[in-house]
Nucleic acid binder design. Structure first.
Length: 665
RNA sequence: GCCCACGUAGCUCAGUCGGUAGAGCACUUGCAUGGUAAGCAAGCGGUCAGCAGUUCGAAUCUGCUCGUGGGCUCCA
């Protein structure tokens, strides 16, 4: 997987600028909430949805009250900050999904310890009942005003608005002593702002306009709602969500560790976490087998030269681990470098070489090569986060080589596979984004392969496949990979951060660049199209999503330990052992608790480890040939005959049943 | 990479004014043989992330390094 250009390789983990790493974003469209995917197949949504999300605060209800409150509070915060740090300059201060933020260049640092005083000052400002007064100025006056205000960043943006967006007049808002260039709207006056319904949340660095070439500003985030109750409910929900954090659960439930002795961003999968990975891989292999994929296996290394041929180097070198230089003799100083190798940051070049390993006929196509290949990317250290953003990862990868006529059907099958995978796992809170070419993009030919005809045709095929799939999607114009359109699947983490789970790209350029051909019906040599696809993204990130989705309480088929058997006394351990042996013959991950603790304690331990099936055996069970079953999340105990217990258990595993409902959220 | 915060036992955390380290859980052992979320007791466990400095004396103060977390256009 991955793309054929450095920039786009990184798209599985978000664009290089980090533009997708929003804090607290709501999914633009909660497309799949509350309804099974299947029912969406024929939904009325067979059209491209609006590019701007429905609950995006910028457009919601044409700037509703909440938007005005948040926007106005941002001004109040800025006023308070300027009181405490006179002479500081302003950046942006927009409403966001759960509050607002404001960016500053501060004359002297503020920390979260200053929050109480800032909040106090904000409340004081609110009490003053300052009126928000709107003023529109034509270009020259506006620019003069900004010069007087000594706000260089606002000024820079104003220039851009006049130049590029072609606006005529610039809007300013004044409340009390505070003046800001701002399009509004705002509340009438500060007393209209609900007291006690906002809370300063955190302080963070943020580059001006998100570009690391620009100045580093100080960003203050705040939560804000219309009522105190809403704020408190939000904060409470946020804290509860932190309990599901995959990093926390990963430690508590022994899923993975990241050990500095190995290296940052290089997770070690513990036995429990490996089970989940393996189960996802098994599932994917089944789905792929059904769709005619063939499995391949390729090494972690390749000669650097290969990446020169694909066009990744030297452009993408920064995203890769440093090259390994093989020298003559013992590699002593001064020995000539014979060849260099790289740790692969993607699998596609290897798969392309497999395609090239023999002469291909049009009759062979489509060829679908699948591999869960381990890749390594040298991500910025500050970007690393648990399993969500790592430097060593396993791609849920496959490359489909096909003719133009096959694109639509193949893409449709790929999207259907996504649907199947997510439905099986009960994942609903995601949306799809169709990223297209922007022929008018000023960066033009540097950003996209210069082949308008290919763009038009491939986008049409992908679009038609999406429409036919019936899966709703949004469009991101100008966000395509440089070699073709793509469909990304966006998920939200428990803390509200949005991440790309899967990226699926249509590549009409790189196979040609590598000289891949097949013999066509007319005996000519033709370049294949290539679809890069990864329904489960990387196994690291995907398992992280699943941990958070299930809150660590996995359904039986996914659970690291599927059944734990407790004997009420050591006397009945033989019965417990026999039961476990019987289950393990059927590949059930069952084990006996031999801790010798009290039953209450063993129940507690199994429960805190979120084991889905707890079986208690004692005299009654041994005598009657039964078990007493207690399912995770339930206090009920059910007595079952051994064979009916086993049959039900095996069925749930076989059917990949989501056998619990209380984690529905 | 950059900004901010944080780093004490395997985990979660306490540690006052700078005076040489503590709890609960986990683990080990012993007792208890217990019927659905913690039986009782003892023990083991720390280079207070690392290095350097200030000091008679540093977990505590300062600097650097390493690591972790949050954030780095939701664009006036």
């Amino acid at each position: 997987m991955g793309g054929a250009a450095g920039l786009h390789l990184r798209f599985l983990f978000g664009p290089p600028s980090g533009g997708l790493r929003f804090q607290g974003i709501q999914s633009p469209v909660h497309l799949h909430q509350g309804s099974p995917l299947r029912s969406l197949r024929h939904a009325e949504s067979k059209r491209i949805m609006s590019t701007v999300a429905a609950d995006d605060p910028r457009v919601a209800e044409d700037h509703d009250e909440l938007y005005r409150v948040r926007h106005s509070l941002a001004h109040v915060l800025a006023q308070a900050v300027l009181e405490m740090r006179p002479g500081s300059t302003l950046g942006f201060g927009p409403p966001i999904s759960d509050g607002f933020y404001y960016d500053f260049i501060l004359t002297e640092a503020l920390t979260e310890e200053d929050f109480p005083e800032l909040e106090k000052r904000m409340k004081h400002i609110i009490k003053q009942g300052q009126k928000f007064e709107r003023e529109e100025l034509p270009r020259e006056e506006a620019m003069r005003r900004l010069d007087e205000m000594q706000e260089p960043y606002k000024r820079e943006y104003a220039e851009e608005l006049f130049e590029k967006k072609g606006i005529e007049r610039l809007t300013f808002y004044r409340n009390g002593p505070f003046l800001d260039m701002c399009e509004g709207p705002h509340v009438e006056q500060t007393r209209a702002l609900p007291k006690g319904a906002f809370r300063l949340r955190s302080i963070a660095g943020a580059y001006w306009r998100g570009n690391s070439d620009n100045a580093m500003m100080t960003r203050i985030y705040a939560w804000a709602f219309l009522t105190k109750e809403e704020l408190e409910a939000h904060v409470k929900a946020y804290k509860q969500a932190l309990e599901r954090d995959h990093k926390k659960l990963g430690r508590e439930l022994d899923f993975f560790v990241i050990d500095d002795a190995i290296g940052k961003g290089l997770p070690l999968w513990l036995p429990n976490g490996t089970v989940i990975r393996d189960e996802i891989e098994k599932l994917m292999k089944e789905l792929e087998f059904a769709d005619g994929y063939q499995r391949v296996a390729t090494p972690h290394l390749a000669k650097t030269e290969l990446y020169h041929q694909t066009g990744h180097l030297p452009y993408y070198a920064e995203g890769m681990y440093p090259f390994m230089e093989l020298k003559d003799h013992g590699g002593a100083e001064g020995d000539e470098v014979r060849e260099t190798y790289v740790l692969k940051p993607m699998n596609c070049p290897h798969h392309h070489r497999i395609f090239a390993s023999r002469l291909r006929s049009y009759r062979d196509l489509p060829i679908r090569l699948a591999e869960y290949g381990q890749v390594y990317r040298y991500e910025d250290s500050g970007a690393l986060s648990g399993l969500l953003r790592v430097r060593g990862m396993c791609m849920n990868d496959a490359h489909i080589y096909c003719t133009e006529d096959q694109i639509k059907d193949e893409f449709l099958k790929v999207m259907t596979m996504h649907e199947d995978l997510y439905r099986i796992l009960g994942l609903r809170d995601y949306y799809l984004r169709f990223s297209t070419w922007d022929p008018d993009d000023p960066k033009g030919k540097n950003k996209y392969v210069d082949n308008p005809a290919a763009w038009e045709s491939t986008q049409k095929h992908v679009y038609e496949a999406m429409v036919e799939s019936g899966i709703p999607f949004t469009e991101g114009k100008g966000e395509a990979a440089f070699y073709g359109p793509k469909i990304d699947v966006q998920f939200k983490t428990v803390t509200g951060r949005e991440e790309t789970a899967s990226t699926n790209q249509l590549d009409f350029a790189v196979p040609a660049r590598l000289g891949l051909v097949y013999r066509d019906a007319d005996n000519s040599e033709t370049h294949p199209y290539c679809i890069h696809r990864a329904p489960a993204g990387t196994h690291e990130r995907f398992v992280a999503f699943l941990i958070e989705h299930f809150g660590g309480a996995f359904p039986t088929w996914l659970a690291p330990v599927q059944v734990r058997v407790l004997a009420v006394s050591d006397v009945f351990l033989d019965y417990a052992d026999a039961l476990v042996a019987r289950l393990r013959k059927n590949f059930v991950r069952a084990e006996v608790d031999r801790s010798g603790e009290t039953v209450g304690k063993m129940i507690r331990n199994a429960t805190t480890h979120k084991i889905p099936n707890i079986v208690v055996v004692g005299e009654r069970e041994k005598r009657d040939g039964t078990v007493t079953l207690r399912r995770y999340g339930s206090r009920d105990q059910v007595a079952l005959r051994l064979d009916e217990f086993e049959e039900d258990l095996l069925r749930r595993i076989r059917e990949r049943s989501l056998d619990r409902v209380d984690w529905d959220h």
